[in-house]
Write a protein that binds this DNA or RNA. Structure first.
Lengths: 341, 341
DNA sequence: GTGAAAGCGCTAACAA
DNA sequence: TTGTTAGCGCTTTCAC
């Protein structure tokens, strides 16, 4: 189907040129923003284009330029968990915002299962994408390497599990953020501090855990418990139960993301522990719900929307660059003081 | 850039044909799945295509077929709220799943602000989209009508605020679901039942409110309070505060979505009301968090992923159809009994 | 069953 | 500054 009432064919550059009384080439120049065009022609073309409400045919353009003018936003996760996390939507929003106005399409894809992974890789290698934003990869996923080998520009959300030559990425200062959370807890006079980690096949979880330990070490203290979660509310609940069972005396918890912190809050309440009086709590993300729970969650904010935008922007500039290792972009975090610590 | 190591040009149909020793036309026929091709040629072509890892150039194909092989998923909402709601991600996932394997791209867009709306409409009218999935529109948005007028197939998520001729949509049985929630509360012996509504410029909120009233009417009862929320946790909190202030004696609440129910749960706890003993609570959505809060939320499940898939499927079939009013698809809801009622 | 040839609408190289 | 020309890679008649 053509998106147009039957009978009226889509206006082409040809028809715009005809109406403006110039050649197709000149019309093309004007629409492409070339400056080497006479004032008269320019105006005539612009008027004609508006008149016909002309829209460039991207297929024809792509064929010539060998660019697709589209960027993929790819979620490398078969599980539901990541999509349920607002983090994902905010990254997407940021990427979209950065691309809006650039005349670049955002193609969305989820890699659920091997079949889809293969289809996607095939598609990407076919030159149908000017770049790929890769999000929520686990472990040592070979996809970035493979795309790079096929000369497809890639930007990763978060550092790769293992360093990959030539791979660009945008990350938050996870270790620094975690450390600042611990320091806050220490400032508040807490002595028995535990942590709930994220899934340890993800670099973000690893870095937050390391930052947590670094913060304690710096004060000559030791963790009073570590329980592994999975970045979900339910995982946070389980981990908190573990922590309490192992050491009923803990007086502070750093959860590696907000969802797990919410789970921990529930469990603490169920065990009759008051937050923050008995147990102080700090999360990570500053997700949209953090301000709405009660008491409101003290957390480490990472600029997720800005990170999404940065990834898209990175991709746009990478297009022009030659070989050489791209510089990772590490965005600062910020402690948001609210009611739980 | 071409997504391919410099020097090695992307294989074309031409090169596949050459390697297979047939004409480009025959190669094309095989790859398009035509049956009028000899067994020998077919095998030769398939082998050659695999050998070269050939990928059809979509731009060239689009140019010929006048189809874009892409569908847009469009969020008509400038506000953050909708994106933070897991509902959105699940719809997206469903739509993506239905399109996977169909060789159709999912183009993602958010209509934040007038500039973006215009750009999008222009783009869509340009015939760059085979169809549009429209999500989270407010009030009497003219966009569906305008797209339809431009002969762009549209499927709406949820019924339109006002009926629009020829507009396809997929909705949940909001009124029925709300009604079943009320009936549960009545079954539990509750007498003083209030509701927290969604934003009343959205049909889903309206229909749930109406279903709530219908359920009460059927038993000859009247609502003990109505407070308007906005589908957010914070809005649910505010509404619950209102409800308690207006009538401290209420013994049940139906919240028009889960996020507001979460807010209500917090406020009830803060006021020393036990859930469900003192006040029973039913939400709507069965969002991923509903099972994780404590007590776990009793709620009305709507099949969101299936709805997203249905919208995409609808779009694919609409392509072929002629004029005539499409039949709306109303998906059933289901009461999920958990701890709050 | 297969091939030759004609474009789809655009951009880019070259002339003028 | 402008126009002419030559394709980009594909699908699709139309012959054979």
């Amino acid at each position: 189907m053509t998106a147009r009432p039957a009978g009226r064919p889509a206006p082409t550059l040809e028809s715009v040129a005809a109406l403006a009384g110039v050649s197709r080439a000149t019309a093309g120049r004007v629409l492409a923003g070339s400056t080497t065009v006479g004032e008269q022609s320019r105006e005539a073309v612009l008027r004609a284009a508006t008149e016909l409400s002309y829209v460039t045919n991207r297929a024809a353009r792509s064929l010539m330029t060998r660019r697709s003018d589209s960027v993929a936003f790819v979620v490398g996760e078969s599980e539901e968990r990541f999509l349920a996390d607002p983090h994902f939507a905010l990254l997407l929003r940021g990427a979209h915002a950065a691309l809006a106005g650039q005349d670049v399409q955002l193609v969305f894809s989820i890699l659920a299962g091997d079949a889809e992974r293969q289809r996607f890789e095939h598609f990407a290698r076919g030159g149908h994408l000017d770049g790929v934003i890769l999000v929520s990869l686990h472990g040592d996923d070979p996809l970035p390497r493979r795309l790079l080998d096929a000369a497809v520009p890639v930007v990763l959300s978060g550092r790769p599990y293992r360093p990959v030559d030539g791979l660009a990425y945008v990350d938050a200062d996870n270790a620094g953020g975690a450390r600042s959370a611990v320091e806050l807890l220490l400032d508040r006079g807490r002595k028995r501090i535990a942590t709930i980690t994220g899934p340890l096949d993800m670099p973000a979880a690893l870095d937050r855990r390391d930052g947590f330990h670094a913060g304690l070490d710096a004060s000559g203290m030791r963790p009073h418990g570590t329980a592994d979660g999975d970045f979900s509310v339910a995982g946070g609940r389980r981990a908190m139960e573990e922590l309490i069972a192992a050491d009923p005396g803990i007086d502070a918890v750093f959860a590696a993301n907000d969802l797990m912190a919410f789970g921990a809050m529930q469990v603490l309440a169920e065990h009759g522990r008051r937050v923050p009086d008995d147990v102080a709590l700090v999360g990570f993300d500053d997700s949209p719900l953090a301000a709405s729970v009660h008491p409101a969650l003290t957390t480490v904010r990472q600029p997720v929307v800005a990170m999404g935008a940065a990834m898209a922007a990175r991709l746009m500039t990478v297009f022009g660059e030659g070989p050489g290792d791209p510089v990772p972009l590490i965005m600062p975090t910020e402690l948001v003081l609210r009611g739980t610590a």
